[in-house]
């Protein structure tokens, strides 16, 4: 095979893959601003009417998703950052087992985790019916990402030496954590935080099982609209979701790349 043919094949596959991912998303965006999808956007015209209806019908799910994402960020930070610090300070068999265990939600399907939570806590009505129940599910799923992101930065900056340096100057454990570990872990915390928020806003597998009619999140609302609303409204709702998630995703990828390039010469 000549170099030129190989290039052409690779280029074609890349473009086809792009088209496969882009075309449905563009269809959805267009459908969300078309007056009547079956007549077509050219025949019926452009409108923001559907976006407006989505806002009336579903704005509560958008606010709830943002609230849960924010709560999830706070809790994963409170649990995850000290945990990553501890895992780095005491690298050993026990730490590895702990890390493995809390990473289980990455390899077990959300559906199974949701069933487990439901059966243990489903009968505690005050908890089951509140958004805290969903929040717990989201923290369970996103926590490993926060821990890994912070842990990765700790191991590339050689925290061990920095800590010993600070200790030789007389800093206490808490001072070392606050003055040395936290500031240096910032790129990892940022990347972890953006990952947590992005994943929380898009989470469906767990949430679908854990939600109640009064605690619908954005993706649950989406599933609801796909089943029961006209195509234009479902599309407009999807458009709103895109507008929220795509910038977050871009920021997340940027922050992750930045965190990974620590310690490498630029």
């Amino acid at each position: 095979m000549s170099r030129r043919t190989a290039f052409a094949i690779q280029f074609a596959v890349t473009l086809l893959a792009c088209a496969f991912l882009l075309v449905p998303a563009i269809l959805s965006i267009l459908a969300g601003v078309t007056v009547n999808y079956f007549q077509g956007i050219l025949a019926s015209g452009v409108t923001l009417k559907w976006v407006g209806q989505v806002w009336e019908l579903y704005s509560d799910t958008i606010w709830r998703s943002m609230g849960i994402a924010f709560g999830c960020l706070i809790i994963t930070a409170i649990i995850g950052i000290p945990a990553a610090y501890g895992l780095n300070r005491f690298p050993g068999r026990l730490s590895r087992i702990v890390e493995e265990f809390v990473s289980l939600p990455l390899s077990i399907p959300g559906l199974a985790l949701a069933l487990a939570l439901l059966q243990l806590y489903g009968t505690i009505k005050g908890f089951r019916l509140s958004f805290w129940f969903i929040l717990v599910g989201h923290v369970l799923y996103t926590l490993p990402f926060m821990i890994r992101s912070v842990l990765a930065v700790f191991s590339t900056i050689d925290l061990q030496s920095l800590e010993e340096g600070a200790a030789s100057l007389g800093a206490s454990s808490w001072q070392r954590f606050k003055d040395i570990a936290l500031p240096n872990a910032w790129p990892g915390i940022l990347a972890g935080a953006l990952t947590v928020v992005t994943l929380s806003i898009g989470e469906f597998n767990l949430t679908w099982m854990l939600h109640t009619p009064l605690t619908k999140t954005l993706p649950v609302g989406l599933a609801d609209s796909y089943a029961s609303m006209r195509l234009e409204i479902a599309s407009a709702y999807t458009l709103v979701f895109f507008v929220m998630i795509v910038p977050l995703l871009a920021a997340m990828l940027w922050a992750s790349n930045r965190a990974q390039s620590i310690g490498k010469p630029s």
Binding site: L21, L22, F204, N205, P219
Partner: peptide
């Protein structure tokens, strides 16, 4: 264009496949 669907939940992808 090849990475933007990274954070899409399965429901949204199902909808996109229906549009396709």
């Amino acid at each position: 264009s090849l990475t933007f669907p990274l954070a899409f939940p399965g429901v949204v992808i199902g909808f996109l496949i229906i549009l396709l």
